[in-house]
């Protein structure tokens, strides 16, 4: 049953936090469901929700929705609201409204090889797509995941990264950290340069990237250098949001509102937007 507030899109429904897991020193996962059971509404990979505490609202990409069981949000501590979110405990009630945004083109990518490139908290939105691919494993070809963070401690979802995903059929996971650490015997360096080292063949492939804006800019350049054409490249943009429904004005890049027309754009679409992201 739909318990979202479709009639009053700016008024949240209430969910309960059923589990909290530390991913890194500043990223924490929150698992939420309605008190009467179930999820408030269904979220597609790449879509977002406006989560709130009494003190404020914030837009977060849904990291995964497990059937009608729960929704999962991995949230990095960056400002006032997220700091407060990091201090809550299991059982806390949260406001939630959504789902917002266009989400990843999961259908259009079927039959393709997938290359996921993420940096830092950027893996959180991509994870919904990655898990979707694994859930519908036969619909997608080879899956490559390239992920980097500042340090080992800052890598999100370590269990999946090192144990679960590498065991999936026809899947490769590449992990890198920015600077060498004594305990780390994996790759060291920034994501874009590792990407160029790996030089994955563009044939039949879709590249999906998400991370800090500066990383995205370099990854886009690298992909272009490696022969990926614009339609093969997908990314997500971030802007400050308040309403989530294309009314309050602030999340525009050109005539597009990131909250409703994004956050997912192909490189082709991106090229038509002013460079203001």
């Amino acid at each position: 049953m739909c318990s979202c507030n479709c009639e009053q899109p700016l008024v949240p429904s209430i969910v309960e936090v059923i589990d909290i897991v530390d991913e890194t020193p500043d990223v924490r996962s929150f698992y939420v469901k309605c008190s009467e059971g179930g999820v408030p509404y269904s979220v597609q990979p790449g879509q977002c929700s406006m989560l709130s505490l009494p003190a404020g609202e914030g837009m977060f990409s849904c990291t995964w929705q497990e059937g009608n069981e729960y929704q999962h949000y991995a949230i990095k501590k960056v400002g006032l609201l997220t700091e407060e979110l990091h201090s809550i405990e299991i059982g806390q009630k949260l406001g939630i409204r959504g789902p917002y945004g266009n989400g990843f083109p999961v259908e259009a990518c079927k039959g393709k090889d997938m290359l996921f490139i993420a940096g830092g908290i950027g893996l959180a939105p991509l994870r919904s797509f990655i898990k979707y691919c694994f859930k519908h494993r036969d619909d997608y070809g080879k899956i490559d995941i390239l992920y980097g963070s500042r340090s080992y401690a800052d890598l999100c979802f370590k269990d999946e990264l090192f144990n679960l995903w590498p065991q999936e059929k026809n899947t490769q996971v590449y992990v890198t950290i920015d600077n060498a650490e004594p305990e780390w015997d994996g790759h060291v360096g920034f994501v874009p340069s590792y990407l160029e080292e790996l030089n994955p063949n563009p044939n039949g492939k879709i590249a999906v990237t998400c991370g800090p804006p500066i990383m995205i800019k370099f990854v886009l350049q690298s992909l272009e250098k490696m022969g990926y054409i614009d339609d093969q490249v997908i990314t997500t943009l971030e802007m400050r949001m308040k309403c989530g429904i294309g009314k309050c004005g602030r999340c525009n890049v050109g005539s597009q509102y990131i909250c409703v027309d994004g956050p997912v754009f192909t490189r082709t679409q991106l090229r038509q937007l002013p460079q203001e992201w």
């Binding site: 009494p54 960056v78 006032l80 971030e238 400050r240 009314k247 602030r250």
Partner: peptide
């Protein structure tokens, strides 16, 4: 518009108020 809140103790309300793209704060990210 902007969306903000006012709370005293355990009660309050969420409100919206005019905002302007001329302000720095308008697009400032967390």
């Amino acid at each position: 518009f902007d969306i903000q809140v006012k709370i005293w103790g355990d009660k309050g309300y969420r409100f919206r108020c005019w905002d302007s793209c001329m302000y720095t704060e308008y697009t400032a990210e967390a």
